[in-house]
Nucleic acid binder design. Structure first.
Lengths: 232, 232
DNA sequence: TTTTGCATCTCGCCC
DNA sequence: GGGCGAGGTGCAAAA
């Protein structure tokens, strides 16, 4: 990895064109050829960049300044994306051998929430029992298929943040599920939209379509789980 | 901006928990307190990070190693996100004054496509004329509201890539627009789904709902525009 | 391999 | 400040 601080000007041409006027920035050249251009603010997104696979060519302009030309591997029949970095003044330049990174270990995303709710469907609605997780349909799997105390089927869609498109998704599932006589024997399939946070518009749309909303407390669910673990 | 290369171990606790085992990485501390942890590969996304606003506190562990604790500004009533970086060996450490960045100038995204189609609605369908761009409705603006040769209103949704959620969006608009007697005078409002590329599933859904699909040639439209410029 | 859907998404616009 | 849509989205699991 090469780390450079330089006064530079950057031009990108590809799916869009973008231009960065001359200013001091941090330039990172990774081992795979990818390049990042960072300023001293903003979030993790660089001002400009080139994703791998790509190649960097170091050249010199007519007036003797260094210019890097980063070229992406061209897609079939298209002009490849290019990033031109014109360097006016080099303030720092160092290279480092980082080796291969062992990678990130994550925990606590939607899958985990689904596991916890599959273990404790009763927290969504009194008496609800699990039929199966990832219940397959022609347009994709329903997160949880359950049955309520009266035997009616209940489809549960789980999101971390409940927004309007999640309600649309559940609506499509319900439309399809309600054509299946095996599921509608005891009455029309109901829907529950479960999320750690449900946006107002999503709630309105869900209620308008007769879909129940359930706000899920992740920490409390994890607590339930740990409590049971201690019993066995 | 401080640039550090170090053998380090990183732990994040917040919306999820994540752990990075001890390895050599690039650490960037920006002027606003934000921190990025990069490996020598992947794209522009860091392995781990903390977004501003946040603060960094440099401390020492019992065994004498340096540890940075990055704490995000806490959301109301929630435990704040934290990032702990334990440094085993410092391989590089330098600070640089970058100043304020003048920022990125962009050109050529969806807005431009919308402008071009607003100029040339006839390329979507013979005889189509523009009523207005960003036609307001209660659930958001319709990209283009047009009228066809028979006087029927036509709502156009424009996407760079046409996927299923775009069809859903247009469907919601049409549902609403068709309740307005001012628009339905000459017949039900029709929909056109316009994109540079339309995914098969989106096409099927659109046709199932009586929505026409239009694949847009961005370069050809730009050509039309330039040709007209030359006439005046 | 391509497609699909989530993300500690980020970012910008408009209310 | 919150909501919503777009992104040169990135990313990984599934098909």
């Amino acid at each position: 990895m090469r780390v450079v601080v330089a006064r530079c000007q950057v031009d990108y041409a590809g799916r869009l064109t973008a231009h960065l006027p001359m200013a001091t920035r941090l330039l990172i050249l990774k081992a795979d050829g990818s390049v990042l251009v960072h300023s001293d603010g903003g979030s993790y997104k660089p001002l400009n960049w080139m994703s791998p696979p790509c190649t960097v060519r170091e050249g010199t302009t007519e007036d003797g300044r260094v210019e890097w030309t980063v070229t992406a591997k061209a897609a079939k029949g298209a002009t490849p994306d290019t990033l031109r970095i014109l360097i006016d003044e080099l303030l720092h330049d160092s290279s480092h051998d980082l080796g291969v990174d062992p990678g990130l270990q994550k925990d606590g995303v939607e899958k985990h929430l689904q596991e916890l709710l599959a273990e404790h469907p009763g927290t969504l609605q009194e008496g609800l029992t699990l039929v199966r997780r990832e219940f397959p349909t022609a347009i994709g799997p329903v997160d949880l298929m359950c049955r309520d105390i009266t035997g009616i089927s209940v489809a549960v869609e789980i999101k971390r943040r409940g927004e309007i498109d999640g309600v649309e998704q559940l609506t499509r599932y319900l439309e399809l599920l309600n054509r299946d006589p095996l599921l509608t024997g005891k009455g029309r399939v109901r829907g529950i939209f479960a999320a750690q946070e449900i946006k107002p518009q999503a709630r309105v749309l869900a209620e308008d379509r007769g879909i129940a909303c359930a706000v899920v407390d992740y920490d409390a669910l994890r607590g339930l789980d740990n409590a049971e673990d201690r019993l066995f």
